[in-house]
Design a protein around this nucleic acid. Structure first.
Lengths: 200, 200
DNA sequence: AGTAAATGAATGATCGTTCATTCAGTTAAT
DNA sequence: ATTAACTGAATGAACGATCATTCATTTACT
């Protein structure tokens, strides 16, 4: 059938409705209408409204991780840790920058309760931080990165910085390419704010 | 009077109830009960449940900014930009680390809708980022900081990093002092991840 | 015909909010 | 000093609107 799959159609509709009205104000009936199905049909595919949001998260993370893997594969296998970190930053911001509604759901709606946050931080997000950490450890091993830095902490800092860029982008009135933040952010994180002490 | 103020008591109760049950699941009646007043009384002091959350935010930001000002005053007036940034990071994390329930409300509950987020990002948070930015501009002027870095972006990166530390702390099972993250985070942000190119 | 998928009206539980009423405390009058 | 009148803060039962969810019925397909 041409329309991909009813379940997917409902998830797409949910993204739009949640992004626009917020998860709690959004009504299941609106999601159904937008997906072109009846309210009851939603419950043939999802256990509850909560399950809808959680499933949205799961589907997106699965897609994102697949995309991330593919992107890293496409890199020259001899890519340096620096190049790999820059690449991750680009992919991260490009993905969110491509779909504002998805970004709203991810940056805001998914974080509305400790329940969802806990789920979020113990699932694929953990893997994502782990991925960053591994790259950093590599860089430390071959001397490109300072070894006096805790790689787990550095991964969080990088994630926090990218996350803040995404949230700012959503709330900003201005129209700009989120991905364009990747370069300057990584320049700062890699090189540091302090001027190198080259007093001649 | 011994009990500070009825309005304050209600806000304190709201912090606890919102932190525990989440804003949407929390019932106004629970907040009232915890504050030791009747449900209707809440509406003598606040327009609506939303107003309760917003007022909570306003009161806390007012307190935090006052505390931040005082802290900066207490610094030697000749403090370098580096010292000032480190100081801000400490105060930021110390404040959240002192009261986990308040931290939950700030890091999670307040971010549950674009409505609150917008309010958040156009109010005192704007001033806070501006404060960071000013310190960075100072540092660039006297050559301590790289001048090829956009100070506004750097302010966001610093904020994003601290914010991520706070969120991680809330969701972590481990018990640790949030403020202890201030030093390593600022070491990373100031010095950068890359090893200085001193190949002998 | 028989099965599965889909429907959408009806249900029922859940609160935010209101407001008629109470009551403690204050003022005024005798 | 005593009583009466007044005030407005506080109460909490009741209201009413909102939705998530269900399920008896219909539709579509083999």
């Amino acid at each position: 059938m041409n329309p991909p799959d009813k379940r997917d159609r409902i998830l797409d509709a949910a993204t739009k409705v949640f992004a626009k009205r917020g998860f709690f104000s959004a009504q299941v009936a609106d999601v159904a209408k937008r997906a072109g199905v009846a309210a009851g049909t939603v419950y043939l595919y999802f256990k509850s409204k909560d399950d809808l949001l959680l499933s949205l998260f799961d589907r997106t993370m699965r897609d994102a991780i697949a995309e991330g893997r593919a992107a890293l594969q496409s890199l020259n296998h001899a890519a340096t840790p620096v190049e790999r970190l820059r690449h991750i930053a680009h992919v991260h911001l490009a993905r969110l920058g491509r779909d504002r509604q998805l970004a709203v759901v991810f940056q805001i709606e998914l974080r509305q309760s400790t329940k969802f946050m806990a789920r979020l931080s113990t699932s694929s997000l953990r893997d994502y931080l782990g991925l960053l950490r591994d790259v950093i450890v590599d860089g430390q091993r071959d001397g490109q990165f300072r070894s006096d830095i805790n790689p787990t902490l550095a991964a969080k800092v990088i994630f926090g910085a990218l996350d803040e860029m995404a949230t700012n982008w959503i709330l900003s009135e201005r129209e700009y390419q989120l991905e364009d933040d990747a370069e300057p952010v990584m320049n700062l994180l890699l090189g540091g704010l302090e001027a190198k002490g080259n007093q001649p």
